[in-house]
């Protein structure tokens, strides 16, 4: 039954607007804050009316924080770039390792297979702080401390299990006979993996990659301990806003907005692949 009368649509519209407002309010507030000076923000009572300023963004992009008379050099844009390099490279490496592994776990039964898969998952259970200190000592010995490579390696703890387990489920849903049909036509195993299995699991791979990217982007503690400001991502970089002369709320808000943009854009781009799975349909044998 279809309710198409206008008051039903109006009612639905109002409900949707309220729900969206409720969930988006904090983000909206932060967005407003990013255009205000610290004085405007700390005004009591708070008011939605203010004269917008781009000073916060200007300060971040120039890399000079001015607060209460003193200036502080920061490398916020560099931090965003680091975040991007770390997250993107970690996800790419995890895809390279994780997708074939997920396929193997989905298709073949081998000795200790289930144990290996579970061990990889269990990396997600361990509190990172537990392993960080010993890791720091090793990293300093190996010369991996404060390098992109070292951090990307550690980030595999976050991204690899995620990709492995999500993509494995997608491979399991694709009937192996679809690949078999391709293989008896004279194609090799590798071609059937690349041409049949991977494209059919693409929505899953896209979802897993996006999630892994977000998790990597939001990571804080690994980079805090295993790198200096040269390689540190924005999560760590944001600490600089808490200065001796007070907390710069406007700059924090602007920093937040800047740091959300890359993930936001990525999610929009990936959306195409995420919904692709719905139209494909009937993959399940």
């Amino acid at each position: 039954m279809q309710h198409t009368s206008w008051h039903w649509r109006l009612f639905k519209g109002i409900c949707l607007a309220l729900i969206s407002l409720f969930f988006l309010f904090p983000i909206l507030w932060v967005l407003l804050m990013s255009f205000q000076t610290n004085e405007d923000i700390l005004r009591v009572p708070p008011s939605p009316f203010f004269t917008p300023t781009l000073d916060n963004y200007r300060a971040l992009i120039a890399g000079e924080l001015t607060g209460a008379g003193s200036t502080l050099k920061i490398a916020y844009m560099k931090n965003i770039w680091n975040s991007f390099v770390l997250s993107a490279c970690s996800v790419l490496l995890s895809l390279l390792l994780g997708v074939p592994a997920a396929y193997a776990f989905a298709r073949y039964r081998f000795r200790l297979g289930e144990n290996i898969a579970f061990t990889l998952l269990s990396f997600r259970f361990a509190p990172p702080l537990l392993v960080l200190l010993p890791l720091l000592l090793y990293f300093q010995d190996l010369g991996l401390y404060d390098t992109y490579f070292g951090l990307i390696w550690v980030y595999q703890l976050i991204t690899l299990p995620l990709i492995l387990w999500i993509v494995r489920g997608y491979f399991e849903d694709v009937s192996p006979d679809i690949e078999h049909a391709y293989r008896i036509d004279g194609h090799s195993w590798l071609r059937s993996f690349l041409k049949i299995a991977v494209p059919l699991a693409r929505p899953g791979i896209a979802a897993a990659a996006l999630l892994a990217f977000i998790f990597a982007w939001n990571n804080f503690v690994f980079a805090l301990i295993l790198g200096s400001s040269d390689v540190q991502p924005v999560t760590v970089g944001a600490l600089a806003f808490i200065t001796a002369s007070g907390i710069q709320y406007g700059q924090i808000a602007a920093g937040l907005v800047l740091s959300v943009i890359p993930t936001f854009v990525l999610a929009l781009v990936m959306q195409r692949y995420l919904v692709e799975g719905l139209s494909l349909g009937a993959v399940k044998g």
Binding site: D177, I178, A181, Y182, L280, G281, G285
Partner: peptide
Amino acid sequence: FEGYSLYP
């Protein structure tokens, strides 16, 4: 194949 297994 028993399950048809056409390529979607």
